[in-house]
Design a protein around this nucleic acid. Structure first.
Lengths: 194, 194
DNA sequence: AACGAAGCGGAGTGACCATTCCGCTTCTCG
DNA sequence: CGAGAAGCGGAATGGTCACTCCGCTTCGTT
């Protein structure tokens, strides 16, 4: 008995539609959060709902796929910060914190997905584990340099980022930058005192 | 033509049921947030759904009633803090901040209601306006004493409290106090630097 | 070209909720 | 005590979604 373990290659049109759906979901989730319906995503992508469900068995699966893309972006941000952390470990940590928060503000749905329990994907995921390790590394270096308060905990960071990004505000409007001010205050609180 | 402007007095049993419903809603909202259904609230109160709706025309109305109770509690906390603010304006502000956050942690549903747009009740409400004024007063005094950074904004506070309380954690479990640590860090960031 | 597999659209299904309706019950006032 | 007004319970309603099903279409291989 032979079991087929390799996922069959998608037909060209199916692959194209998959990409359209993913892009549509990304756009809609970023703009309006988890409240978007599968029907709306299908419409935005220009396909039928059936097509959406053929590629992503459940709404959770679709959201998870979009989230994974974001996690990879965060990973890139964190790796960059580590590269820069030789010169100024706190500054590296801080810029990573702000950049990741900004990413969350841009993608409301992703933030909700990571924060809420509903759509929480199991954390046993290579990219997420590595992201956590990178952030831990940034924190360790800044603490070792005496620039960050030593009781800072890695596992508080994701929740904090989610919390702050929920403050709302836009990326561009300087009048509407609650999240930016909150980052500022928070990072001040995290800085080690003389 | 005479228009009846006074709300008619409730019959004794009706008043009792109204109180039961309110208490049940408070309990369930605190424990599980806005996801509770009207049916569950009715069951918890030991009445039929019809009775719930006769007293509170919509779910929003019921939530709003529970929220108003919380706002009054917050008002009490803030007034107490003002009374204590002669001696140590920052400490007064900080304790008020922590106490209100704790209240939010205890009442998940209330926090959601205040933070989310869905159930946001119009802010043109005497108690809320006064609460805002009290917090402004606390901030002004601490800033005037040079103990609080002068760019602290009153209107960031509610959102911050909501954000931090969303971090989760329990009131009692000392292992699970993310919200308490976050308060600590935040207040450190808010303290004016030498 | 031609055929079978893979894919497609979108009406239909079932579950879940807030809200409504109405026949019966319980107060309360005279 | 005896209306009848005020309340009550809970089945029924209507709307919203995620998800399924199936007859038709398109792809890609021979």
């Amino acid at each position: 008995m032979v079991v087929e373990l390799v996922a069959p290659v998608l037909r060209a049109d199916a692959a194209r539609n998959r990409a359209l759906v993913l892009a549509a979901a990304e756009r809609l989730l970023a703009a309006r959060g988890l409240e978007v319906t599968m029907q709306e995503i299908a419409d935005e992508a220009g396909v039928g709902v059936g097509t959406v469900f053929r590629r992503f068995a459940t709404k959770d699966d679709l959201v998870a796929a979009v989230v994974e893309d974001r996690v990879h972006e965060m990973l890139t941000i964190a790796r960059d910060a580590i590269a820069r952390s030789e010169t100024g470990p706190f500054a590296a940590f801080a810029s990573c914190f702000v950049a990741i928060t900004e990413l969350h503000v841009r993608h409301r749905g992703v933030m909700e997905a990571l924060a809420g329990t509903e759509y929480c994907v199991p954390v046993s995921n290579a990219a997420r584990v590595e992201l956590r390790e990178c952030v831990a590394e940034l924190i360790d270096r800044a603490v070792a340099a005496g620039e960050l308060r030593p009781d800072a905990r890695v596992d508080d960071i994701p929740a904090l980022v989610c919390a702050i990004s929920r403050l709302g505000g836009s990326i561009d409007d300087p009048e509407d930058d609650a999240w930016r001010r909150a980052c500022d205050i928070f990072l001040d609180g995290l800085r080690a005192r003389r």
